[in-house]
Nucleic acid binder design. Structure first.
Lengths: 222, 222
DNA sequence: ACAATAATGTGAGAAATCTCATATTTTACT
DNA sequence: AGTAAAATATGAGATTTCTCACATTATTGT
């Protein structure tokens, strides 16, 4: 993590407007940080000092269980806030957030502006919408996880995350995200290959029978 | 559902203060309704007209999947808000809410006060805290559901939901809540009986070996 | 009080998913 | 370039959980 020099910082602040979320001038309170790929924005069980607004990059939000299993709660993509729950103090200790690519974040010192933020209707309204949306998608994901087998969920995930008929997510992340073992993920992936729905190529898979994948995914959607 | 007469309504409003959550006088906008046990407060996929504040009673929040499985997302107990996500319009269609006991709710017409609410910092701050707390507990529940077997989760649930060493939740609800089949719930319950951790009695179970249940539950807690 | 409906309970077999062991390939680091 | 660490891959066997079928109480409405 490194703090960007003034001129670069200002350029980011100009490029990614954040003022709309506040009814007072937030710019004086912003520090711009850059995180390398793989760096932690929040360590698990830490007490965050900053509310972040990620403007570039990708990260994963996860928790580690006592038995060693990891639940990848969400893939986080810019633009988004991070640490808002901790700001609210509803949850004192943070979950973990680790970047998946080089990321740029606006950091706002909680200590400096907590009071102002929690009395700012513009910020609070945005935050309500954000939290509500986050809760809705999380609930959808988790209830589906327990109502459908991996076959359906993986088909759905492949369709959502593939880019131009090409799927290349990391197995190690996907199994934590879908809540199954690495072994089982590979097993179902092999089934899909076997059935000709996908075909291994280089470091990923080409979708070779999209309609069938869509049929499997459609069993979930309501 | 029936609307309570003026005098009863006022008595409830007096007994359960709600003004603290608003910076304007909300009382003129409140209608007091009573729901019988088993009545629906929201039908699934409906568009709510009211934001509710439940002051007495218990209900369950659930969704039905395409394959017929039901996910019981949460047991709702007074006092709490309902329909707040729909008010925010983050989610246009509601999930289902059905009461588990006779319940009394304050109903606030969305159409009448939406504008005012979404600009009210007192209300918005409370709502942020509420949503954040809800998201935190839901995430904890769901990630644990996929990281631990029913043995651990059920032990934990029995300890949490039993009253004075006596467990008497409905199996049909519990299996939807814990995300397993009815059959499997009964199977693990039988295991616990077999091992002497619980003992069937009348319409429920007596906890006959709390320490062992606690040991199982402790595998989860972090 | 009686029928209808919901909840409880159990067996048997199958499917989904897990654990563990181990080998190979890729990626990251110095 | 060389080594350590991470990611990929696969087999075998065990566990967990599911489906379905069916029987037996409770509960509810009229």
């Amino acid at each position: 993590m490194r703090k960007l020099p003034i001129d670069e910082s200002l350029s980011y602040i100009e490029q990614y407007p954040i003022s709309q979320y506040f009814s007072f001038d937030i710019v004086p309170f912003i520090h711009v940080y850059e995180f390398d790929k793989g760096e932690f924005i929040f360590h698990e069980h830490s007490i965050p000092d900053y509310l972040y607004y990620m403007v570039e990059g990708k990260a994963k939000l996860y928790i580690t269980h006592k038995n060693g299993k990891i639940s990848l709660i969400d893939f986080i993509t810019a633009p988004t806030f991070m640490g808002e729950m901790e700001l609210l103090n509803a949850e004192r200790y943070s979950k973990g957030i680790q970047t998946l690519s080089k990321s740029v974040c606006f950091a706002i010192s909680i200590q400096e502006v907590k009071e102002k933020l929690l009395a700012d209707p513009v910020f609070l309204k945005m935050l309500c919408l954000f939290l509500s949306h986050k809760a809705t998608t999380a609930t959808a994901k988790y209830t589906q996880n327990q109502a459908y087998s991996l076959e359906n969920r993986l088909a759905s995930f492949i369709l959502l995350s593939s880019d131009q008929q090409f799927y290349k997510e990391k197995h190690t992340e996907v199994c934590d995200y879908l809540g199954v073992s690495y072994r089982h993920l590979l097993f179902v992936l092999a089934q899909f290959s076997e059935a000709g729905y996908i075909t291994k190529q280089n470091r990923g898979y080409v979708l070779t029978n999209r309609p069938e994948l869509e049929k499997l995914a459609a069993e979930i959607t309501y």
